[in-house]
């Protein structure tokens, strides 16, 4: 919802691009009735853009309300493609080669990414929200994004939470540790492909299926321990 006095996303985009050359801002339309369109930032210029949004007198987005992560896993897309291929036909005892157009279903994998969303408001001008987004290159080894905590302190705990639950590494964050899970925890539970370990949920109670499952788990655990001591 656009509040009175706030510029449209197009105007904000133009203002950013005038102030930060080569910022590469992209508008992400939102088709829901809320019509809260967002701006996708190039991570390389994010800090400069953030400072501009905070310090610009017309925008004065001094209040970063909400920071959150989204996981977009790799998506398998099936497409129908028309291919021309040679076909050998036998007719009248003679082999003939002809070209024929056939429809083929091809699968390709759209690479996934992790996305971080920032909701900005202005306390001074009482308008908002302006929504910023940033994407990582992939979900595995290139998951760095610049931290906006140096610009808005309210991102401190929220970026720690995104790091903890999604695994986005915020460069320039002053104190990047896990927030909710314990330090020795390995995985990122909010990712879509996270698998819950079998021994967290199930207390061995007097139910056959659960007992069998616990026994299997413990057997596997003991073999591992045995290997470790050798």
């Amino acid at each position: 919802m656009r509040e009175k006095g706030l510029k449209t996303v197009e105007e904000i985009k133009a203002a950013i691009e005038a102030a930060v050359p080569g910022a590469g801002v992209e508008i992400v339309p939102n088709s829901s009735p809320s019509a809260q369109h967002s701006l996708r930032l190039d991570p390389r210029h994010a800090a400069a853009v953030a400072r501009f949004l905070r310090d610009n007198e017309d925008l004065a987005l001094d209040f970063l309300s909400n920071v959150t992560g989204i996981d977009w896993p790799d998506k398998e897309v099936a497409e129908k493609v028309k291919v021309i291929r040679p076909v050998t036909k036998k007719g009248d005892g003679v082999e003939q080669t002809a070209e024929e157009t056939v429809e083929e279903t091809r699968k390709r994998v759209e690479p996934g990414c992790l996305e971080v969303v920032y909701h900005l408001f202005s306390v001074a001008k009482k308008h908002g929200p302006v929504v910023l987004r940033m994407r990582t290159v992939n979900r595995t080894d290139q998951v760095e994004l610049p931290s906006l905590t140096p610009v808005w302190r309210s991102a401190e705990f929220q970026e720690r939470e995104v790091f903890d639950l999604y695994g986005v590494v915020f460069t320039g964050h002053p104190d990047l540790r896990r927030l909710l899970m314990w330090d020795a925890f390995k995985d990122h539970p909010m990712r879509r492909d996270y698998v819950e370990p079998d021994d967290f949920e199930y207390e061995p109670t007097a139910h056959d299926a659960v007992l069998a499952r616990a026994a299997a788990h413990q057997a596997a655990h003991q073999t591992q321990e045995g290997k470790g001591s050798e």
Binding site: S31, S32, P33, S65, I70
Partner: peptide, 24 residues
């Protein structure tokens, strides 16, 4: 089934700004 899109709604809860951010 909401149409694909997103929304951020917030209210003045007794403790501060309570917001919900939903993506459909």
């Amino acid at each position: 089934r909401p149409k694909p899109g997103e929304a951020y709604g917030r209210i003045e809860a007794p403790k501060g700004e309570l917001g919900f951010y939903l993506i459909s």
